[in-house]
Every structure is written in C-alpha cells, then in structure tokens.
C-alpha cells in the first residue's frame, strides 16, 4: 500500500482511538478536578458500560439500531447510579481523603471486575453495530460505524463543554472545583455536587464504552487499557482542564495510530509514556492545566 492511503488509514484509526479516549479521560479529569479524587476504578465503569450495553441490546432484540440506542442511553444511567451509590457508601465516608480514596477505588476496581466475571462471565461478547455500512475507498474498505463514533464523540464533548461553561450546573461545578470551602460558604451543596460529578464521570466512561463495544467486544478485563491511557491523557492535558484533555486525547490517539502502523505498537506506548515523563518534569500541571494555588 502506498504512503498516502496508508497514512489516511493510520489517521482514521487514530481518530477513533482519540474519540473514545477523550470521553473516557474527560470523566477521569472531571472527577479529579472537582473532587480531587484519583478514581482508579474509572476503567471498570467503562467496562460496566460495555457489559451493560451488551446486556441491553441482547434483551431488546429487533433491529440492531434500536437496541444500540437504548444501550447508549440506559447503560450510562445504570453506571451513573452505581457510581453514585459507591460515592455515597465509600468515598463520602472517607471524607474524600486523597490517600484513602485511592485505596478505596482500587478496592472498587477489583470488586466490580470480579462481579462482572462472576455474573457476566469470561467471554468476549459482541454487540451488533446500529448500521454496518462499509465505506469503500479506492485502496481499502473502512467501517462507516467507526466514523460515526468520531462524530458522536465530538458532539458529546461539545455538549459537555456547553454544560460546563453555559449552565448553572456547570457554574456550580466550576465553583466547587475552584475552591470548595468558599463554594460551601456561598450555599453550594458541595456534597451533592461531589456525588453528581462522580456519577457524571462514570457515565462519560460508560458512554465511551457503549460507543466502542460494537467495534471491540465487551469483556470483563477491557477496563485496564482505557484507565492507563486516560491517566496518560489527563496528566499530559492537565487535570481538570477540558481543553487539555481533548487536545491530549487527539495527540495520544493519533500518535498511537500512526506510530503503531508505521513502526510498532510497542514504540507508540513507549513514546506516550516518555511524553508523560517529560510533561511531569517540565510542566507538572500539564499542557493546559493551571498551577495549583
């Protein structure tokens, strides 16, 4: 295959990775930005989203698009509810203490993962894409669904941005992120904001998973890679910065797609990790983060 089409394929693959990664990492970034909680179980909420998407599409049947749309709405809601319960039962009782919440979310990771193994089983199960249009380019075929994932993800990111910057809920969230004690003094129910943000973070991961599951199946270990990549994205982009998260996700996704296609996937991972190290050394607050006060 010639260089041009080869690069196009690499870029398309990279953009799909970026799209899903941006949504997942945004959830992680929000939770950290507002609550100062490092959510190690974030990848498991991603996995839960995929597993539930499978369960919902299987239960509904009929035209694949019907089940898929239902999954895209219901799966994140269920995951959000589970996250809210976890937040109320565990994180709140630890007073959001940074060290304690890391240990607690590691515990959640294992509990969710093993429950999924027990209830859902060890198989990788497929979800039928809502439509299976194959775009025929002169050099290769490409899945139309994958392109729609990029578009959907972009729309969702814009929606999240609008919520954060243009609505009262967004204002409250930003106020809590900026200074939770002062926010509380002004009558903002910080506890409830925390609960909502934790649920929202998990829901974003679940949406990303529901989008990706028709491409790569639901499996109980699928949360590990997104977690790692999300951390990389969030560190590079700057914790709590929406713009930074999106830019870093595109950067990591594209470099992963292109480097792993022209060189090797291992090299792509090495470079991403190196980038994290460099950012931590030279700009610890991340590319777009603000230095902590």
């Amino acid at each position: 295959m010639h260089f041009g089409p080869h690069l196009l394929l690499a870029a398309l693959e990279g953009l799909v990775t970026s799209a899903v990664l941006a949504l997942t990492a945004l959830g992680l970034s929000l939770v950290f930005g507002v609550m100062r909680v490092v959510n190690v179980a974030h990848g498991e909420f991603f996995m839960l989203g995929a597993v539930l998407a499978w369960a919902i599409t299987t239960a509904i049947g009929g035209h694949p698009a019907l089940g898929f749309l239902a999954a895209l709405v219901i799966a994140p809601l269920i995951v959000g509810a589970i996250a809210l319960v976890a937040e109320r039962l565990v994180l709140r009782r630890l007073n959001y203490n940074p060290e304690a919440t890391i240990v607690a979310t590691i515990g959640m990771l294992y509990i969710i993962q093993q429950l999924a193994l027990t209830i859902y089983g060890p198989e990788a199960r497929p979800v039928e894409p809502p439509f299976s249009y194959r775009i025929l380019l002169p050099w290769f075929g490409y899945s139309g669904y994958k392109l729609s994932v990029i578009a959907t993800s972009a729309l969702l990111l814009i929606a999240t941005w609008l919520v954060l910057t243009r609505t009262k809920i967004g204002l409250i969230m930003r106020a809590t992120q900026y200074d939770s004690e002062t926010a509380q003094a002004f009558g903002i129910p910080v506890g409830r904001v925390y609960g909502g943000v934790f649920a929202l973070g998990a829901m974003l991961a679940a949406i990303a998973a529901a989008l990706i599951v028709p491409i790569s199946q639901a499996h109980y270990l699928m949360g590990q890679d997104p977690l790692l990549l999300s951390f990389i994205v969030v560190i590079i982009g700057g914790l709590g910065s929406l713009r930074g998260t999106v830019v870093a996700a595109v950067l990591i996704g594209l470099s992963d797609g292109i480097i792993s296609m022209f060189f090797s996937p291992t090299l792509a991972k090495i470079i991403a990790t190196l980038l994290v190290a460099m950012v931590l050394v030279f700009r610890p607050q991340g590319l777009f983060g603000t230095a902590s006060r």
């Binding site: 295959m1 394929l9 693959e13 990775t17 290769f140 490409y142 797609g257 296609m261």
Partner: peptide
C-alpha cells in the same frame, strides 16, 4: 484490541 492498523 484493534487490528486495522496492521492490515496494510
């Protein structure tokens, strides 16, 4: 978890 990139 994704393979298209290898097919070229």
């Amino acid at each position: 978890s994704s393979f298209t990139k290898f097919f070229p």
